[in-house]
Design a protein around this nucleic acid. Structure first.
Lengths: 245, 245
DNA sequence: GCCGACTATTTTGCATTCATTTTTTGTCCT
DNA sequence: AGGACAAAAAATGAATGCAAAATAGTCGGC
C-alpha cells in the first residue's frame, strides 16, 4: 500500500510565465496535459486499474512518455502508483476531502490577505461585477451559472494576490477537488446558497477596505462552510437538487 | 524558456501514512529520493546543466528511471526541464523567493489555525520545551542550535494541525527554500533574532489560548518578517555573522 | 462443490536502441 | 586573425526488448 512517489509532497511547477495556453512541444508534456484532464474529468472510475498498454494505444504513443506522465500525475496526487501493480486513480476518503478543503481554505485565506496589499480599484470593480452576476444566477436558481461566477470570483482573488507560486498550488488542489465534483454530482443545498451569498458580501466588503487580516478570516470560514456542506452532501447524496429554470 | 512541465502546479503526493522513513522498493523511487536530497543540499550549482549520462553513471542506473525522477523533480519545482536542452537546477529569483516565503507564511498560518482546534496539552508542553531550548541557544548565540529548535517548533505546529495534505505541501515548499539556505549562507541578523524570540512568545501564548484566528495572524506576520530578513540578507550577504561561542 | 496449488499469460520495471535535435569542433573564406 | 559555415560529436526524446513480478486460469485434492 505504498505509493512509488512517497512521503514528499510535490508543491508545484514554476510560474512558467504563460498563464493559460497549453501549447506543448514535447510528447510527454502533451500526454501529461491530456491525461490530467482525462483523470480530472472523471473518465476513469475511482480506484480503477488502468493498464499502461491500454492507455498507450488510446493515446497512440509508446510506454516511455506515458510512464513519465504517470509519475508526474502521481506526484501531483491525482493517481497512485503501486509498485509492480500499476496506476490507480487516487480514491479520496472523506478525511482526504476534508484535508483538501482545509488546505484550499488556507490558500484562499492567504490569497485574500495578499490581494489586499496589491489589488487595484479596477480589479475590485471587476469582482463586484462578478458578484452581481452571481447574485442574478442565485435569484434565478441557476446553479451552473452561479457556480461558474463563484469560481471566477475566487480565481480573481487568487490572481490579485500577485503570486504565481500560490496560483499554481491553488490550481493543483482545485484540480483534485474538481475531480470529486465531476464524479459525485455536487449539488449545493439551498440554505447554504443564501449563506454563501452573505459571506460573499462580507468578502467584498473586507476587500474594498483592504482589510487583509479580516478578509483572511472570512475567506477561511467561507471555505470551511463549503467543506461542511460538501462533506454532508457526500454522506447523503442529492438532497434538494435545484430545478433548472 | 518554457519548462516541459508547464503551467500546472503540482501540489503534492498522498499522505502515504509513514511520516519519516524512506524505504523504497522501486529503483526510480530510490533515485528520486537521492536526487532530491542531492539537489536540495545544493550539490549542483544554480542553473548548472547536468547531463543525464553523467547522473546515470553517478547513480549507477540507466536513463529511463533517471528521467522519470527528473520529471517529478521538475513538477516539484526544484529543477527545470528545457525541451531538448536538458535539466537545469531551478534558479530562484528574488521574486520567486518572496513568493515562496509568502506561501510558506500562508501554510503556517493555516497550520496554526488548525492546530488550535486539535492540539493536546501535551503537545503544547512539548512545544514549550522546544521554545525554552531555543531560548537557551539564543542566549548562547548558538545559531545552529537555535535554527534547529526553531524548525522543530514550526514542524510541531504543522504536525498538530492533523492534516497530512498540508504537511506534504509544507514539506515541499520547505525543501525549495532549504536549497537556497544551503547555497547562500543564511546567517540571521542579531536584531532579527530578538524580534523572532518575541514573536515566538506570542505564538505560544495564542496557542495556549487556542486562539486560532489570532495565531493565524501572528504566524503570518512572523513568516513575513522572516521573509524580509532573508531578502535583505540576499541583497547584502553576511552582515553580522554570529560568532559561535 | 469449494478451496488451494501450479502453470500460463499479462503487466510492470528497467535497459538498450534508434531517431532528432543541439552543441561543439574544425575548416575555410574574407 | 576573426567570423561564418559545415561536419562531427554528444545529448535528448521516444520506441523497443527483456527479465521479474503479478494476475488469471486451470487442475487437483479434500
Amino acid at each position: 500500500m505504498k505509493s512509488t512517489i512517497p512521503d514528499t509532497g510535490v508543491p508545484f511547477a514554476p510560474p512558467a510565465g504563460n498563464g493559460g495556453d497549453r501549447q506543448e512541444a514535447s510528447l510527454h508534456g502533451e500526454i501529461l496535459l491530456r491525461l490530467r484532464d482525462y483523470v480530472v474529468e472523471g473518465n476513469i472510475p475511482d480506484g480503477a486499474r488502468v493498464p499502461e498498454r491500454q492507455l498507450c494505444e488510446m493515446l497512440g504513443i509508446s510506454r516511455t512518455p506515458l510512464r513519465e506522465a504517470l509519475k508526474v500525475l502521481a506526484a501531483e496526487g491525482l493517481i497512485e502508483l503501486l509498485p509492480n501493480r500499476g496506476a490507480r486513480v487516487r480514491q479520496l476518503s472523506q478525511r482526504d476531502l476534508e484535508e483538501l478543503f482545509d488546505v484550499m481554505a488556507g490558500l484562499e485565506s492567504l490569497a485574500g490577505r495578499l490581494a489586499c496589499e496589491a489589488i487595484t480599484d479596477a480589479e475590485i470593480i471587476a469582482i463586484e461585477q462578478l458578484h452581481y452576476e452571481m447574485y442574478g444566477h442565485y435569484l434565478h436558481r441557476d446553479m451552473h451559472g452561479y457556480f461558474q461566477a463563484n469560481q471566477r470570483i475566487h480565481e480573481s482573488i487568487v490572481a490579485a494576490a500577485r503570486n504565481e507560486t500560490l496560483k499554481a498550488a491553488y490550481a493543483n488542489f482545485a484540480g483534485r477537488i474538481r475531480r470529486v465534483r465531476y464524479s459525485a454530482n455536487f449539488a449545493r443545498k439551498r440554505q447554504r446558497w443564501a449563506e454563501a451569498m452573505r459571506e460573499h458580501e462580507a468578502i467584498l466588503d473586507a476587500l474594498r477596505r483592504r482589510a487583509g487580516s479580516e478578509l483572511s478570516d472570512i475567506l477561511f470560514q467561507h471555505l470551511r462552510n463549503k467543506r461542511t456542506a460538501a462533506i454532508e452532501h457526500l454522506a447523503e447524496p442529492q438532497e434538494d437538487a435545484p430545478a433548472s429554470p
